[in-house]
Design a protein around this nucleic acid. Structure first.
Lengths: 194, 194
DNA sequence: ATAAAATCTTGAACTAGTTCAAGAACATTT
DNA sequence: AAATGTTCTTGAACTAGTTCAAGATTTTAT
């Protein structure tokens, strides 16, 4: 017996749902459990689903030609994650999405979402609001990447997402913040002494 | 007599519009002309509108505490621009949006858009698709900022947006690409010789 | 056409952040 | 509990990109 209360509550932060709406939405959810280090999205495969994290921690990242990896996003409980580019275009992904811990996810398929939006404008609205918020968030990130020093970026992130800092490996955080793992280690040491 | 063909064509790339839909949309558009160096969005004022560029070139940018400015976005003909964070939350802006040339813009107010979306799901859909695309684009930018050297970033941008490179001041481009204006000048020299 | 303002260039000195390498600490499997 | 794999730390040498300053060029206004 799967519990859909969390994901439904998430949606209800944006739009009201009738009992029937809830049932309709639940009917397209596919739930699964994942093991640490498992990939739920991989380059060259189309990212068919948007994934809601019921339990666990994930990251999406890109591996450059030089073999360095660059973290695009983290997601813990109550967040969505995917290779969004691949998802909306239904073209092959360029990112990995990897479980950083054992976890449980709810997935919704591209075509099911599009059909649902068509049928019930309420969901169209939900996905519009979420996409707008995500875009605003991504712009904010660009901004703080451009403006700030490596140390300032770390301090800001640590203030805003203390839980994530504790849960994800340091090399993944460093690659999210756009610095080498070694340098992040040095920053942390410097800050712990001050 | 104002011409709405371009903005309507833009929308019709995503959804079909009846004659009535078009009229409805046109009724909320406010058109104005702007002079070079004019601000259409300023910090501390709520960004009431999303702006469609009919003619001209714009940039949005942020001024940091140290007084450096960081370009977030450029927009030329057929693009939308705003302080999107301020627009969707209807809270005071933190960005400037400045005209880089004399131009003509079509603006649509937050509340008018929300009402229109409520009334006609077709527009809800349009704005969802646009927001999703914008988000995907912003993620791509984060990615190329993280992965690449200053020179590679410039080359990539130049390949993708040659028109913009020609139309905007170099210091604005440098601040978009996350490097000093001097360094961009040096990169260009280096490339022109090679 | 001239003056004033804005933008771009160049070199020299500097620094924030990288790379490499090797060991230490921690986690996971048997 | 030992063994293996994974992640984190530290220092030394390096480099991509910055800052400063001054002149050259282009644009804008009168």
């Amino acid at each position: 017996m799967t519990d859909y209360q969390n994901i439904l509550r998430n949606i209800k932060r944006y739009v009201e749902l009738s009992e029937e709406d809830e049932q309709e939405f639940i009917s397209i959810i596919k739930t699964s459990s994942v093991k640490k280090r498992q990939f739920i999205v991989q380059p060259n495969f189309v990212c068919e689903y948007q994934t809601y994290v019921e339990k666990g921690a994930f990251r999406s990242y890109f591996v450059s030609d030089e073999g360095e990896d660059h973290t695009i996003q983290f997601a813990i409980e109550d967040w969505f994650i995917s290779d969004f580019n691949s998802y909306i275009s239904q073209e092959p992904a360029s990112l990995f999405v990897e479980a950083l811990e054992d976890g449980i996810i709810h997935q919704i398929a591209y075509q099911d979402v599009e059909n649902l939006c068509e049928k019930k404008p309420k969901f169209e609205r939900f996905f519009r609001l979420v996409a707008q918020k995500s875009f605003a968030y991504a712009q904010k990130r660009v901004l703080s990447n451009l403006g700030k020093s490596a140390e300032a970026r770390y301090i800001e992130f640590q203030a805003q997402y203390p839980t994530i800092v504790q849960r994800v490996p340091q090399y993944a955080l460093a690659s999210y913040l756009g610095m080498s793992a070694e340098f992040l280690s040095k920053i942390r040491k410097r800050l712990s002494k001050a």
